[in-house]
Simulated scan of single mutants.
Amino acid sequence: MRELVYYIASTLDGHIAGPDGADPTGPDGFWPVPGDYLEHLATEYPETLPGPARQALGITAEGTRFDTVIGGRKTYQIGLDAGVTDAYPHLRHLVFSRTLTESPDPAVELVTGDPIAKVRELKQQDGKDIWLIGGGELAGALYPEIDRLVIKLAPLTIGTGIPLFGRSATFDPRNWRLTDHTVLDSGAAFLTYARPSTG
C-alpha cells in the first residue's frame, strides 16, 4: 500500500514558515538554501523540486519516491502569487480547499471533501508514495494518516511561526522510529521517521 509522507522543511524550533505563511525561501525569505542542500534535493528527491526549478537546473529525473503531491490552499497560493498555477506538473497534484470553487489549472485536482477519506482512497491506488507538502493545517488534519516523516531540518530558529502540524492540531502524542538520516556540511539534516507498526 502507498504511504503518506510528510516531507517538509522545519526550523530547529519546529516551524515550517513565518507567522505570515509566506514562502520562507522566496526572494524576501529568511531561510537560506545552501548549495549542498539544493544538490541533495536534486540527487535524492528530484521530484520534489518545483517545475520551474527543475527546468532551470536541467533536472529531468523522474524520481523514485513520489508520483502524487497533496497540499492545502495556503500552500498552493504561494505558487499562484508567483504566477505558477501548477508547481509540480510532473506529479499528480491535488489541492485541498474549502474556498476555491474551481481549479486555476486543469492539471491540478481540487478536493473539497474530507482530507482523511481522500488520502485513504489514494493509498488504495497503485503508484508511488504520496507527498504531503503542507501546510501545517492540512498536516494537522491528516496527522492520523501520516506514515512517514521526512524532516529537512534547517540550522535555524525563528521564535514563532506556523508549527509543523499547524496551530489547531489535537494533542495526540506518538513515538516515531528514526530510519535514515543525512547531515550536510551546511548544517541541514534530513531525518526520516517511520510510524511504528501497530499490528
Rank of each mutant, 00 (worst) to 15 (best):
R65G: 05
P32Y: 08
I162Q: 13
G63P: 01
D129E: 06
G113T: 13
H90Q: 04
V108E: 15
E3S: 10
I16W: 02
I59R: 05
T179V: 15
Y193Q: 13
G26F: 05
S10D: 10
P32C: 03
I116A: 06
G161S: 06
P34E: 13
V84H: 05
L80V: 15
L164G: 00
V95H: 03
D86I: 02
L110E: 12
R167C: 10
Y143V: 10
S168H: 15
G135L: 08
I151N: 08
P115K: 00
Q125G: 09
G35R: 08
P50A: 06
A87W: 05
W31N: 11
S168V: 07
V84R: 07
T60I: 07
W31Y: 14
D28C: 06
P196C: 05
L94A: 06
L94P: 00
A169G: 02
T60H: 04
P19I: 10
L138V: 11
A61P: 06
E44V: 11
L12C: 09
S168M: 03
A141W: 05
T25R: 05
E62N: 02
R195M: 03
A169D: 03
L142E: 03
Y76L: 08
G127S: 01
D172M: 07
R98Q: 14
R73N: 12
A141L: 15
T68K: 04
A189M: 11
G135Y: 01
D81C: 04
A17Q: 01
P52E: 05
D67Y: 05
P104W: 00
F171Y: 12
R195I: 04
G199H: 13
P144T: 05
D105R: 03
D105E: 09
P19W: 00
A117D: 15
I162S: 12
N175S: 05
W31G: 09
A189T: 14
Y143P: 08
D36C: 14
E44F: 14
F190R: 00
A42Y: 01
F30T: 14
P34G: 00
T64G: 15
A189C: 11
T64V: 10
G187K: 04
E137I: 03
T25A: 15
T198N: 07
A42C: 04
G35S: 10
E145Y: 02
R98L: 08
V183R: 08
T68W: 08
V150W: 01
D23R: 06
P89L: 02
P104N: 04
H93D: 03
T179M: 12
V183G: 10
I8C: 02
A87M: 02
Q55F: 01
D114A: 04
V108S: 09
V5F: 07
G35E: 15
G58M: 01
A53D: 10
P52C: 04
E102F: 06
R98Y: 07
E47S: 07
S10T: 10
P50M: 04
Y6V: 12
T112A: 14
G161K: 00
L164A: 07
D180R: 09
K152P: 02
R54E: 04
T157V: 15
D20C: 11
A188F: 14
E102K: 10
T43D: 11
Q124N: 14
P163I: 01
K123T: 14
I162Y: 13
L132P: 03
S168R: 12
I116Y: 08
I78C: 01
G161H: 00
Q125E: 15
L153A: 08
G135I: 08
H93C: 12
Y45G: 02
G72T: 13
